[in-house]
Structures are given as structure tokens and as C-alpha cells.
Design a protein around this nucleic acid. Structure first.
Lengths: 230, 230, 230, 230
DNA sequence: GATGAATGAGTTTTCATTCAT
DNA sequence: AATGAATGAAAACTCATTCAT
């Protein structure tokens, strides 16, 4: 029965960042040529459905229904299921990069930027657990997403090293440290309900791992924690 | 088409630790009563198939075929796919714990133990990429596995703290640091082919994240790296 | 083996009322939009298969094959087996009601109507044993069908009571009397081959149970028996 | 998994007539030779499981588990599932006949006996709905059970006719009247909760259908209703 | 470009039944 | 006689994908 998928589509999404990402994908969609408009609608719908049901649990028909089109239309725009998943990943990277760019502008220290970046990711997990879990799931599946996200923090770390704040054993390892810790913490935050003190502790630990003294690590973690939402 | 599953079963498994784990599961299987013997055979087969095809990509039929029984027999022993996956996870934990226990006996310092443990996990990724990826996938799915594995390193960290080697912001965060970094690195090692210098760098970074000075971190990382195989 | 279901579909249906009901369901099907057309085809096929094989003995695949579609298509139209069975029941009620309405128009007495109704059901059993058995099976499974059919005879009984023909102990019990007797007789007629005198005897007994004198009961039973076919 | 069936077996049976019949089947089982003892145990278990889960919903393995034996043993005693169902039917007939015999001894009038018999069946539905539903289900499947049970009431009706109480149109039809009404009422009682006034009304209606005057019918229905339990 | 309808290959799961011990 | 283990055939249901209109 097709109605089944309509039902899934009808379920309200709790006001959340997933809706946030979904909305960003659909932003100024009206100004686009028709073909691109439908495509975007489908990608946004996929973002929505994938975060709610997980990758394996999502069906093309569900995504199509959520987008308000039929499965046939889906295949007019995407070769197969994987292709739309890739498209979602690409959009997520794009959006995360933009957000990262926005907040980094005002911060001059690499350490600050790293702290800020970590907090931003942890906030996603807190404010929109399902989007966070989707990001993690995507990251597991495609090393590209991992690398892309890594590129951002890599630049910040390099800056921090130049500023003599960080002492690291290798750029890649340093990125992995931050990355690994943050992703694992995102999972815990998204799944359980960790106290917000956990988030600060995570960020401080990451900074210490990059070579900061415990004191400075903690101080920076606190500082950047302030601007929480988003 | 049933032959499909036979083909899967027939594919040779590259000489690997998965075979290693698979073999450990089947060790002294002959001395067991028949029921338990079959059950073990299925668990071992599941270990084999799951690592080759991933969790979502594995079918009960395939596991049964690999075990040399029919799907019906599978369901005589396990309620469903999830149950056998849990059984695999339990076995993996058991085996990892045993291996961890063996090597820790000779090490008195928490820092040494942590270094050694990290190296051990990274070695799994190097020697048996698919088993490593399965472990990672299992860990993503069930926080219990995560916690179980975490318990081992947690004890080592606590020891290191008592010995004034580690300076941490919280036990959980410290565990997550090690865990997150090691798991991410395992993925990279399993997927690409990282140089073995990467492994040392990873371990050193983890130790520095726990509060060790760069020098000692690096030294310990080197030291424990020696006993690689296994 | 898929051919199994094709064979079932290929078996000729003995010229019968089941075919009758099946045909009524498919009547003017060509004028319908495609989706509804297929749906009807499946319901008609279900009617066919269910009467031949019983509810428990019927498989979705068999119904689909009989309808000339695949099982997948079946599930595009019905959530599960139960849903198509319900649809069959609804159609049967609809058809039985229509038929009842047609013959009642010309009869002014409640007693006549009851006699006529009973004969009509018994005729189904005689003319189309398997359809009758299906109706009985459906009635056992869902009290709603029972109630729906009951509503028809209930009105007739009420009329007869107002006309001082019937003396009953309660409307429900009266309905149950007619219902119980007719359904049981339908079974006997459908299974064995009872003489047509049995049918008259059944109707007379029902009328006597409703309070008619033996003479009038028998007379009415004879009278209404004349218009047999259908 | 086999444990599944053990769980079913472990569910407590509400104190009931089903347990009653089950117990009667197992009565003085200890004095029997081993082979017969096991057989009885299985039949009793079948009675238990069939009433709880319906015929289609019962599995051989469940019956075996309930009997405390394995499925293999089941097949040492019965050719197939149908055979044990037949055996249950046979036992039910035997028990119902015995009970009927017990209460009829004291009643001299056919009308009394019929009234008493009807009440006895309705009481089964009230006191043990699931056993009643099983009896009905069995009756639908095998005309033999129907006939066997019918034989009892047939004798009573014949007696009533000789005593000039009943005026009927044929013995078979008269039996069917009683039978049909009682079985349908049993279903209603077993499924919903009908008031006990319903039972009296049912019996009165049956008697009126056999030719009794409304007054006598009602009086006898009341009279025989007194000895309810069992 | 979009639709809606159909497909068919999977996949899980259940269960009556067999059989060596 | 009983067991316990295994079997294999069938059934329900899902879903990615195709295609004529």
C-alpha cells in the first residue's frame, strides 16, 4: 500500500535542526528552474526521512512521498537510492562549512576556532539528535564526508600550531583526535541525555589533546560554550 | 535462488584476524554437545559473513549457508537476525577482553597499558580490516558494546590517574577521547593503507590527550608498538 | 515454485454463483479508472480463490495469480490478506443486500419476506456450494458480517411481529433462530446433497420457531420456494 | 527457537472448562500402559492449545511442548496434525455424551431434556469461552462432530414427539433448528457478554420452534436454567 | 517532466515433518 | 519409545526499479 509511505511523510518533525537543514536545502527554492526545484525538494525530503528512519530503514517511496512526488519522479532525478544519499551528504557538508565559516570569522585564535567548532557539532547532537545521528551514519559510510568535515578543523589546527598553541604529532592524527572524540560524544549526546557539563569537558579534553595546558583548555572550552544555540 | 548464498559462503576469506576471531569462536567446538556446537558454528559463520558484507548487507540465509545449515536451523537457534548479531558482539567482547587481559598482566603502568591497548586495536584494523569494520559497525549500533570495551580502558586510565601520569577532565571524557580516536583511526587503517608511523602517532596523541607530556607520550607509544602482531 | 499458483488460477470454476458473485464484483469494471479496476479484479479473484480453498488455505500469491497480477501488485492495493478478505466480505454484504431488496419489494408480509429470505440463502448453498461455505466461514470470523446480514432479517421479523404473525421471546433471539438454522442448513446443503424437500422443511421450521402455526408455516414455506433460482 | 513454544505452554490456563475437559481426558491416566499414557497427554495438551490459539494458530511443536514431549514423540503417536485434531474431537464428543447422559437420567420428558441440553451447551460458552469456540470450530470443520452431537438431541426430540409435546416437520430439520440456534448463541455468549436472560430466551425459542406453546416453552426454559454450573 | 501502476527479486519467518541416535 | 536436531517448503511482506502514458 502506498498510503503507508504517505503516513510516514505526514508525521510531524519535531522542531529541530533537521528541519533546519531541510529548510536550508529548500531555501530560495522558488527562484530555481523547475527541474532543479524538484530535485532540491527530493533532497530535502531525503534529509528528513533519513534522519528519522536511518539509512537502511528508509525507502525510496518514503522519500518520494515526503517530497510530494512519486517514486517515478524520484528516478527522473536520481539514478538510485545511493545517489540521493550522496546528494544529502554533499548538502550537509556545504551547510556545515557555511556555518563553520560564519563563526570562525570573528575568532582569531586557532584554539578558539577549534573549541568553537567542537561546541557547534555537539550542539547539533543536543538540539537535533536525529540529524546528528544521520551525519554520523553518513560519515561511517563515506570517508569523503569524513575528509570534507576534517578539512575545516584541519585548517584551524594548522593555525593553532602556527600560533604555538598546539603541539601535535602530525596533522592527520590531530584532526582524527578532535574528530573521533567529537563524533563519539555526539553519539552519546544524541542517544542519552548527557549534562551540558559533559560538552565542556569534551572540548577541554580535545584541546588538551592538541597540546594546550589543562587550564587554558578548560578556559577556552568554557568561553566558546557560551554561544550555544546552533 | 538458493545457490546465491552458497556462492557467498564459498568465497575465500583472506587470511585474517576475522578468520582469527571466527576460529576462536569455533575453538574446541568438537568437545561440545551437538546443539551448542551448531550454535557456535552459526555464530562463527555470522562473524564471517557480517564482516564481509556488513550488517545491513547480510541475510540470514547467507549466514546459515556459511554455517552449513539451512535457514530453518538458524531459527532453531536464534530468534532473529538481531539475536545472532548480539551473540557475535558478545563473543567479540569476550575475545577482546581476553586478549587485553593477556597483555596487561606484564605492564604495571596505566599509561603503558593504555598505549598497549590502543596498539592492539589498531593492529586488528591492520591485520584484519573487515573484522575491524564489523567491530566498528557493531559499536555504532549498540552502545553496550561501546561501554563494554570502554570498561577495559577505563580501568587503565584510572590506574594512570592514580599514578599521577594522567591529568583528565573526567573519566568518561577521557575514555571517550581514547575510544573515539582509536575507532576513527581503525577505520582509516582498515579502509586505506596507512603507514605504521600513523599508528604510533595515534597512540602518542591519545596519551598526550590524557595529560602526558609530548615526550613521554611518544616514547611510550614507540615502546608498546614493538609487540605488534596481535 | 511459482507455477503452483498459476495452476490454481487455471483450474476451471464450476459454473456457479461464486462465479456469479465474482462476476457481479467485476461488473462494468471497464468503465473504472485503472487503479480501481485492478483492485476490483483482485477482490473478485479473492472471492474466487477463497471459496475454492477456504480462508486459511488461500495464499496471497494464489489470489494475485488468479487476478493476473503479481504479489507485489497485490500489496500495492491491500495492506495484507485480512484487508482483501474484508473487502470480499463487504462486497458479499452489498450483493446480498441488493438481492434481498429486489425480492422483498413485492412481498407485503413479514412472514413472507422471512420465508423468501431463507429460501434465497438456501438456494445459494444449492447453486453455489463453495460461495456458501465462504460466506459461512466469513461469518464465523467476523461478527460484523453476521450482524450485517442479520439486519435484513431483523427488519422482516419486526414487520411480522407488528402484523401479529410472529410471537417471539426477543428480537435478537428470533434473528439468531433464523440465522442459526439457515446457516447450519446451508452447510448441509453445500456439503452433501440434500433433497429440495429439506429446504422447505427448514423454512417451515424457522417460521414455526417465530410463532407461526405449523399449517401456515408450511404453506408459506412452499409458496416462497417456488421462485428458486437465485 | 524452541523456547518460544515452551513459553506458550507455560502460560497459565484460566480455571475453566477447557481445563475441565483437559483434565477429564487425563483422568486416571496413571493406570494406563505407557504408550497410551503419552498419547492421552498429547491429546489433552492439544485440547488446551487448540482452544487457546485456534486450530489454524496452533503448531505441532506447541502442542508437544504443552504435553511435555518433543515434536518427534508427537509423530510417534499421530500421523499428522489432523489426526490429533480428530482425536480431540472424538474426546470432546465422548465427554459431552457422558455429561448429557448424566443429566438426562433424571428427566422424563423429551422437552425437559432438550431444554436441559441446550442450557448445558450455553453454559459451556459462558464458563469456558475458548473451549466453546474450539467446539464450534471443530464442528465447522468436520460434519461428523456435528452429526455425533446431533445424535444426542435427536433422541430427545424423538422422545418429545412421542410424548406429543413436539410438532416438527422432520427430525433432521428439528435437530438442525436446535443445533443451529444453540451454536450461534454459543458464539455470541463466548465472544461478547450476553446477559443470562439471553440464555433463557434462546432455549425458549428453540422449544417453540419444536412446537411447544410459548408459555410452556418459557416455563421449561426457566426450569432447566436453574442447574446452571456445568 | 511527472505520474501511477506494476513488477519481481529478495528477505524474514514459520512449521509440519523426518530421522539418526 | 522418546529425543533432539535438522530440514525444506511455503508464506507474508518489502522495496528498488521500470515503463507506458
Amino acid at each position: 500500500m502506498d498510503s503507508k509511505y504517505k503516513e510516514i511523510a505526514a508525521q510531524p518533525v519535531p522542531r529541530s535542526l533537521s528541519a533546519g537543514i531541510e529548510m536550508e536545502i529548500k531555501a530560495d527554492i522558488t527562484s530555481l528552474p523547475k527541474r532543479e526545484r524538484t530535485r532540491r525538494q527530493i533532497v530535502a525530503a531525503a534529509m528528513n526521512v533519513l534522519s528519522r528512519q536511518g539509512i537502511a530503514g528508509s525507502a525510496v517511496q518514503g522519500i518520494a512521498a515526503q517530497a510530494g512526488v512519486t517514486a517515478g519522479t524520484f528516478y527522473n532525478h536520481f539514478k538510485d537510492k545511493d545517489e540521493v544519499i550522496d546528494a544529502v551528504a554533499v548538502w550537509i557538508i556545504k551547510i556545515l562549512e557555511r556555518r563553520a565559516g560564519e563563526s570562525r570569522e570573528t575568532l582569531s585564535l586557532g584554539a578558539e576556532r577549534v573549541a568553537n567548532g567542537c561546541h557547534r557539532y555537539l550542539a547539533i547532537a543536543r538540539n537535533d539528535p536525529s540529524a546528528a545521528l544521520l551525519i554520523l551514519e553518513l560519515a561511517m559510510g563515506s570517508p569523503e564526508l569524513l575528509t570534507a568535515i576534517g578539512a575545516i578543523v584541519r585548517a584551524d589546527i594548522r593555525l593553532g600550531v602556527r600560533q604555538k598553541d598546539f603541539k601535535i604529532f602530525g596533522e592527520k592524527t590531530a584532526v582524527d583526535l578532535v574528530h573521533g572524540l567529537v563524533m563519539l560524544s555526539m553519539r552519546f549526546i544524541a542517544l542519552g541525555n548527557m549534562p551540558s557539563s559533559y560538552e565542556r569537558s569534551v572540548v577541554a579534553t580535545a584541546l588538551q589533546g592538541l597540546g594546550l595546558s589543562p587550564d587554558r583548555a578548560l578556559k577556552l572550552a568554557q568561553q566558546q560554550a557560551l554561544s550555544k544555540r546552533r
